[in-house]
């Protein structure tokens, strides 16, 4: 599910073939060199005598690498030129790396309104994507192995990564630059949808949060308000407008929680709220262990209902 050897986009495909060619070439050279070494050690002296000469070094150590590398270098540069190329009309997405999650923003596009989400990058199949990345704190690195290389998220700089998803599916991305305590638990999902599904998703995401329709969910929303969750999280359409943590307007629609750590359901949400500092110590959110089981279920239920 997360592999550079299973390319799902053009760039990853190109790099995959580069990898294959270099691996095969490398193995052949390795066999040649070690073969010669063993021959030099074990062959009969008169048979190996031709090898014990300056000519061996000139041919094997100087001419051969120069010829091989003179071919590899332009090939590598060509792959580099064709990889990660900005395309006009690409879908712009902005991502900000934070300790230890991903803020995702879809800017307004003609009549489509802007909106934010977190830890989930949803893209249409076949349309070029241009992700602008930066960081809110320390350096992170954005990497979805199935779609190509990584790009660092550096405070004060905006980098871009361009790619096109060619197969619908769910892929996993990770932070590749060590970013502190929970670097190991900083992942996200990339969901590639057919264009029509993507448009539908986008329209849904831009809407304000759903109103709770059951008493327990109303209770959950009340707990959310009273607990001060809104000082860090935004739920569009309610008074919660904190900017510090992930946007929760449609948190129920996401596949995973905790930056790609757990499947998203009431149980994991409740566990997360009560035990963040146990499950992901060092994360910026405190544990809310004092909530009663019933309250916790109501709160988690409310969040889960925010489809």
């Amino acid at each position: 599910m997360q592999s550079a050897l299973d390319p799902a986009g053009g760039d990853a495909q190109r790099i995959y073939w580069l990898t294959v060619i270099m691996t095969v070439g490398g193995i052949l050279i390795f066999l040649l060199v070690t073969g010669l070494l063993l021959y030099a050690i074990f062959a009969a002296p008169e048979r190996r005598a031709w090898l014990g000469d300056r000519r061996t070094i000139i041919v094997g150590g100087l001419a051969f690498p120069i010829v091989v590398l003179s071919m590899l270098l332009p090939y590598g540069l060509t792959v580099m030129r064709d990889t990660d190329v900005p395309t006009p009309g690409a879908l712009p997405i902005e991502m900000v790396g934070e300790q230890y999650w991903w803020r995702v923003r879809y800017p307004a596009d003609q009549e489509r309104a802007e909106f934010s989400t977190a830890n989930e990058l949803v893209v249409p199949v076949g349309r070029p994507i241009s992700v602008s990345v930066t960081s809110a704190d320390v350096i992170h690195s954005f990497w979805i192995p199935n779609f190509g290389g990584k790009i660092d998220m550096i405070p004060g700089r905006i980098n871009r990564l361009n790619f096109t998803a060619e197969r619908p599916g769910i892929y996993r991305g990770v932070c590749a630059e060590f970013c502190g305590d929970q670097h190991a638990r900083m992942a996200f999902d990339l969901i590639a949808l057919e264009p029509a599904e993507f448009e539908a998703w986008r329209v849904d995401q831009a809407k304000p949060a759903l109103e709770p329709d059951l008493p327990s969910l109303v209770r959950g929303r009340e707990l959310f308000r009273m607990g001060g969750c809104g000082s860090c999280h935004v739920v569009r359409g309610t008074e919660a407008d904190g900017q510090f943590g992930p946007d929760l307007t449609h948190v129920g629609s996401r596949r995973t929680i905790g930056a790609g750590q757990f499947p998203n359901n009431i149980g994991t949400l409740a566990g997360w709220i009560a035990n963040v500092q146990h499950i992901k110590p060092g994360a910026r959110m405190p544990s809310y262990g004092s909530l009663t089981g019933e309250d916790l279920r109501a709160l988690a239920g409310y969040l889960e209902s925010l489809k």
């Binding site: 590398l69 003179s70 270098l73 332009p74 540069l77 060509t78 580099m80 030129r81």
Partner: peptide
């Protein structure tokens, strides 16, 4: 020479 090659290939 190798360091001159990129000028012909890359933007």
């Amino acid at each position: 020479l190798w360091h001159g090659i990129p000028a012909f290939i890359l933007p």
